[in-house]
Design a protein around this nucleic acid. Structure first.
Lengths: 209, 209
DNA sequence: CCCAGTCCTGGCCAGATGGCCAGGTCGCTT
DNA sequence: AAGCGACCTGGCCATCTGGCCAGGACTGGG
């Protein structure tokens, strides 16, 4: 049991900040496993191996926990999965590989997507947190833009539209595919959809001069 | 006050089924206005102008209310907004008009989308309801397929791919756009995204022989 | 050794929630 | 009128929630 080990290791002599961190991570684990509504202060503390009292020693309120959670990147971005680009291959194929790779990292942790969605909805009702989802959105967009530009350089292509426009479209495709996937849970269909959009989006690419 | 009027009108002599219906509608109203978590049995009954006891007279449990809610179409489909198709105009433009019209009906009631999203997530955790989101998805798909076929006939075009494939892509675009819109709340950006995809999807269309 | 400051905890609280039920009311048949 | 079955209700309950706090435990500096 990792939690038990963690408990024993970190039981005492922890700074309040460190505990805050532990609790934040524990909250995310509970939310992924049992859903956002199940992440009560008690459940979170139990997951972190702390007594209930510890929660309000580290956080003024539960809202503060939500804020801390949305401030961290919930969706881990394993950029390690950099797809290999072959300048000789047609752009369509390269784009397909790129989108597929990105999709795999998204689909690898669908529960994180669910949590992010729920948390976003929750934050939108809380005036103090209502700005965070937009921030998260811009972050994703920036990451995709960077990836698209790297791709363009390596595959020796350029985009017919502004890169940010293409990125917005890519994000839209991923968001939509994720939503639908959560409903039907059909991995194959999701992959096919991504592939089809790759073909379509290839229309926005041409060999660099 | 409409609720008071409703109350007075429908106060007594109602069949259990009618009350079920009233409560279901009231629940949807509360969820749209205050969020799904705020839709407690008490809040729902208050919205419907009924005493709390009425709830468990009509529903065995709250889960049954969720089921009833997901069984009905949450997203009202005002098919009245049939866009005018001009066979003379280029398919791209016709497709753009079609998607825009559809998008407007979606974006007209964003709270319904939020509720649907949250409810879907909730249902996925409940084994008894886990099938409903997929059902909902198939329903949407079917509606889009029908619309696409009508469009093809009126605009005298045909699709290069299976209509269901095109529909899945359209649904993906709408889902994604909705999700992103919920985060950034930028009407213009959403519309532009839809327009851009219309151009892209026009690549899957050719004049009918 | 002591002391001050931080860390830490179990227990308590008020409020809300889903669910249940004894008993009242109403309209319809006989 | 009498009864009967469906309709309806207010109040009660166990449980759980976020939040609070008095006081114990530990550590490092003097």
């Amino acid at each position: 049991m990792e939690s038990a080990e963690t408990t024993r290791t970190a039981r005492r002599n922890l700074s309040a900040a460190a505990r805050r961190d532990l609790l934040t991570q524990a909250a995310l684990r509970v939310m992924k496993r049992d859903g956002v509504p199940a992440a009560t202060t008690r459940a979170i503390c139990a997951e972190a191996g702390m007594p209930h009292g510890a929660f309000h020693y580290c956080f003024r309120s539960k809202r503060e926990l939500y804020a801390a959670l949305l401030a961290t990147d919930i969706t881990v971005a394993p950029n390690a999965a950099r797809p290999v680009v072959d300048p000789g291959a047609p752009p369509v194929e390269n784009l397909r590989v790129l989108l597929r790779a990105h999709w795999e990292t998204v689909a690898a942790d669908p529960d994180a997507q669910r949590v992010l969605t729920d948390l976003t909805g929750l934050a939108l009702r809380e005036p103090a947190l209502s700005g965070l989802p937009a921030r998260e959105h811009r972050g994703h967009l920036a990451r995709i833009v960077a990836e698209l530009e790297r791709f363009a350089a390596e595959a020796r292509v350029e985009y017919l539209r502004d890169t940010s426009e293409v990125a917005e479209m890519v994000l839209t495709v991923f968001s939509g595919t994720t939503t639908l996937w959560l409903a039907h849970r059909d991995d194959g269909a999701a992959r096919e959809t991504v592939d089809r959009f790759a073909v379509l989006l290839a229309g926005l690419v041409r060999p660099a001069l």
